[in-house]
């Protein structure tokens, strides 16, 4: 029996951040990732007869996302060498460990952890993600070296990652 279309739409809306992240990891460009995500959305609804249920859909979406992401890279010859199948397989295993956590829980944890950042770090996150400024553009805007920007961004992400892991561990006790 095929999955209901509204289940597909609901899952795609609810989990679009996770799927976007998966595609973004492969294509290294958020705009390309969003285009690929749109393609995957169309495919999921068109091919719904092949998808049994919500559990099947999660795996199906990841395979489709991987295929479409690599296809997008192949069509743009200016792109650097894509990840090997071996590397994507290894990353898939890592992605699978995050499937149990809902996107909403992660968003909540991120909001809590954001409050623990310094005002300057929060401002950086806001510029980077609210305004969509890449590191290179941020460097120009803030009149800093690009390396300094990426040092700051990496520290913010490390702090957020550590905080979220601790938060999730506390919540799961």
């Amino acid at each position: 029996m095929a999955i209901e279309q509204d289940t597909i739409v609901r899952v795609l809306v609810k989990d679009r951040a996770r799927l976007l992240a998966y595609i973004w990891a492969i294509v290294s460009d958020v705009h390309v990732a969003e285009d690929v995500l749109s393609e995957v959305t169309v495919l999921a609804v068109k091919k719904r007869e092949q998808i049994a249920d919500e559990a099947h859909l999660a795996g199906w979406l990841r395979i489709a996302a991987r295929t479409e992401a690599l296809k997008a890279l192949r069509t743009d010859r200016s792109r650097p060498t894509p990840m090997s199948d071996q590397l994507i397989d290894l990353l898939d295993a890592e992605w699978a460990t995050r499937d149990a956590q809902s996107s909403n829980d992660l968003a909540d944890a991120l909001q809590i952890c954001m409050q623990r950042l310094s005002p300057r770090a929060r401002q950086l996150v806001k510029l980077r993600y609210a305004e969509g400024l890449s590191g290179a553009v941020l460097a120009e805007k803030l009149n800093q070296r690009i390396k300094s920007i990426y040092v700051a961004i990496s520290r913010v992400h490390r702090a957020l990652g550590d905080c979220i892991r601790a938060h999730v561990a506390r919540e799961s006790r």
């Binding site: 951040a17 992240a21 973004w24 990891a25 990353l91 890592e94 968003a107 993600y129 992400h157 990652g161």
Partner: peptide, 15 residues
């Protein structure tokens, strides 16, 4: 790396 991608995407969506 997976954390970074996931958090970046959620932040992008959230903001």
């Amino acid at each position: 790396f997976v954390d970074l991608c996931l958090h970046s995407a959620v932040l992008t969506e959230t903001f």
